[in-house]
Amino acid sequence: MDLSALRVEEVQNVINAMQKILECPICLELIKEPVSTKCDHIFCKFCMLKLLNQKKGPSQCPLCKNDITKRSLQESTRFSQLVEELLKIICAFQLDTGLE
C-alpha cells in the first residue's frame, strides 16, 4: 500500500467515525433535522415525532428512558451545521477519490 492509499484510508476512517457520531440512534442514518431532548440526546426530528405520536402523554428517550414530550424537543442548529459540513466533506472525498 503506497502512502497516498494509506492517507485515503485514514481520511475514510475519519469520515466513517464522524458519520457514526452523527447517526440517529433510532433510524441509524445520518441525522436529518436534528432535535435534542432535555437529556441532551440527539435524534432526527421525524424519528422523534413518530415516537411521540405512538402514544398519549410523555414518551421515553430511547437511550436513557427519561420522559420526553414534543414541547421539550429543541432544534439543534449546531448539529445541523455539523451534518451539512460532513456531507460536503463526503462529497469532496468522493469527487477526489472516486470512492463511496
Results as ranks from 00 to 15, higher is better:
24 C>P: 01
40 D>G: 12
3 L>S: 15
31 I>L: 10
21 I>T: 10
42 I>K: 10
19 Q>P: 02
98 G>D: 15
73 L>P: 13
11 V>L: 03
40 D>Y: 04
25 P>H: 05
87 L>V: 08
43 F>P: 01
71 R>K: 14
27 C>W: 01
13 N>S: 13
33 E>A: 08
56 K>P: 14
61 C>W: 01
83 V>L: 09
76 S>C: 03
22 L>S: 02
86 L>I: 04
19 Q>R: 11
8 V>P: 12
12 Q>R: 09
43 F>I: 05
42 I>P: 03
32 K>E: 15
47 C>G: 02
46 F>S: 05
44 C>F: 01
82 L>I: 06
9 E>Q: 12
54 Q>P: 06
37 T>P: 04
17 A>D: 12
19 Q>H: 11
96 D>E: 00
100 E>A: 12
42 I>M: 03
6 L>I: 05
75 E>G: 08
11 V>E: 00
94 Q>K: 11
12 Q>L: 05
88 K>I: 12
74 Q>R: 15
2 D>P: 07
72 S>N: 12
68 I>L: 09
18 M>R: 00
93 F>S: 02
7 R>P: 14
89 I>T: 10
65 K>M: 12
28 L>P: 02
26 I>N: 03
6 L>R: 14
33 E>V: 10
45 K>P: 02
69 T>P: 10
62 P>H: 10
68 I>V: 04
66 N>I: 12
22 L>I: 03
18 M>I: 05
49 L>M: 15
50 K>P: 06
49 L>R: 07
73 L>Q: 13
4 S>Y: 13
19 Q>L: 12
13 N>I: 08
54 Q>E: 07
21 I>V: 13
18 M>P: 00
76 S>G: 05
92 A>D: 03
51 L>P: 07
99 L>F: 03
99 L>M: 11
81 Q>H: 13
81 Q>K: 08
75 E>P: 14
92 A>S: 12
56 K>N: 05
63 L>I: 15
48 M>I: 10
31 I>V: 08
79 F>S: 02
2 D>V: 04
30 L>P: 08
57 G>A: 06
20 K>P: 04
92 A>G: 07
58 P>H: 10
35 V>G: 02
94 Q>H: 06
45 K>I: 07
78 R>I: 15
63 L>S: 10
64 C>W: 01
34 P>T: 02
16 N>S: 13
54 Q>L: 07
68 I>P: 02
87 L>F: 09
90 I>M: 06
4 S>C: 10
91 C>P: 04
96 D>N: 00
88 K>T: 08
18 M>K: 00
8 V>A: 13
63 L>P: 03
80 S>N: 07
40 D>N: 10
20 K>E: 05
99 L>V: 11
77 T>M: 15
81 Q>L: 10
37 T>S: 07
62 P>S: 13
40 D>V: 05
44 C>G: 02
33 E>K: 10
89 I>P: 00
64 C>S: 01
48 M>R: 01
86 L>V: 04
83 V>D: 01
37 T>A: 11
3 L>V: 09
38 K>N: 13
85 E>V: 07
54 Q>R: 15
8 V>D: 04
44 C>R: 01
96 D>V: 01
72 S>G: 06
95 L>V: 04
65 K>T: 11
77 T>S: 09
83 V>P: 02
72 S>T: 12
53 N>K: 07
76 S>I: 02
20 K>N: 12
29 E>D: 14
7 R>S: 08
12 Q>H: 14
30 L>M: 15
55 K>M: 06
24 C>F: 00
26 I>F: 05
39 C>R: 00
31 I>S: 03
90 I>T: 12
35 V>A: 06
34 P>A: 04
100 E>V: 08
23 E>K: 06
64 C>Y: 01
36 S>F: 11
76 S>N: 11
88 K>N: 13
70 K>R: 15
99 L>W: 13
92 A>T: 05
78 R>G: 05
77 T>K: 14
74 Q>E: 09
18 M>L: 06
35 V>L: 08
28 L>M: 12
52 L>V: 07
54 Q>K: 09
67 D>H: 05
79 F>V: 03
59 S>A: 05
75 E>A: 11
11 V>A: 15
42 I>L: 05
73 L>I: 13
72 S>P: 06
86 L>Q: 11
87 L>W: 14
38 K>E: 13
14 V>I: 08
23 E>Q: 12
36 S>C: 09
90 I>V: 09
94 Q>R: 04
51 L>V: 08
97 T>A: 08
40 D>E: 11
77 T>A: 06
13 N>H: 09
95 L>F: 08
34 P>S: 00
13 N>P: 08
19 Q>K: 04
14 V>F: 07
71 R>G: 15
2 D>E: 06
5 A>G: 14
21 I>S: 13
61 C>F: 02
88 K>E: 04
32 K>Q: 06
78 R>P: 14
17 A>T: 06
98 G>R: 06
43 F>S: 15
29 E>K: 12
47 C>P: 01
70 K>T: 15
17 A>V: 06
